[in-house]
């Protein structure tokens, strides 16, 4: 595995990270506003997927090892800088989600960068993030019920982040602003 990122890759990473960071901050505000409502811990889970777009998207655009991880990480740092309500505590979640989005690529040896990997990545990110939440708030003390309800919102829908990333990525490939990257190098393997 080589981390030979070019400046162009870094810059792509930053642009997506910054944009999604701001979106993530906005989402954070929405999330905490929803969370305090009655049934908030279920409802708020349904917008969690927005946090898992950045990683798969960056990986789709750049296709080099570690890019999904970094995409999530930059997104997280940016959202802390732009004033995410969870503040610095955000980093805990981000670290796990970053690993989650990277894992499917790692397991397939960075050969394929298609929809499947993106969906699984986002889903894993949702799961990891959710388990961290349970640990962080120590809700596991209260039995399975505590795990069950939020599961509906949070984990059931987090794959949507991967799907959205896929559509945005496809759209960008069509414009030709990215993607000339893969045509003449050996990192092809765009599924479908």
């Amino acid at each position: 595995m080589k981390f030979n990122y070019s400046t162009k890759d870094i810059v792509t990473l930053i642009v997506v990270g910054v944009i999604m960071g701001i979106v993530s901050t906005a989402n954070g505000f929405l999330f905490s506003a929803l969370f305090v409502l009655p049934y908030g811990n279920i409802i708020s889970g349904f917008i969690g997927f927005i946090w898992y777009i950045a990683g798969p998207l960056v990986m789709f655009l750049v296709r080099k090892p570690g890019m999904a991880f970094l995409g999530e990480a930059v997104m997280g740092v940016m959202s802390v800088i732009t004033g995410h309500p969870a503040g610095i505590a955000m980093m805990g979640w981000i670290a796990l989600e970053a690993i989650g989005t990277e894992l499917p690529y790692l397991c397939t040896g960075y050969k394929k960068f298609g929809l499947v990997q993106m969906l699984i990545g986002a889903e894993l990110a949702g799961l990891f993030s959710y388990w961290f939440g349970i640990y962080f708030y120590s809700t596991y003390q209260y039995g399975w019920q505590a795990v069950w309800y939020p599961y509906l919102g949070f984990v059931a829908i987090s794959w949507l982040g991967g799907l959205i990333a896929y559509y945005i990525g496809k759209g960008l490939l069509k414009t030709g602003v990215v993607g000339s990257n893969f045509e003449d190098t050996d990192q092809t393997g765009i599924t479908n």
């Binding site: 400046t7 810059v11 642009v15 997506v16 945005i168």
Partner: peptide, 16 residues
């Protein structure tokens, strides 16, 4: 999103 990222990325590539 696509035009937004497009504009951002194209600019960023000049920066690169």
């Amino acid at each position: 999103t696509v035009p937004f990222l497009f504009c951002g990325l194209r600019r960023a590539q000049i920066t690169a």
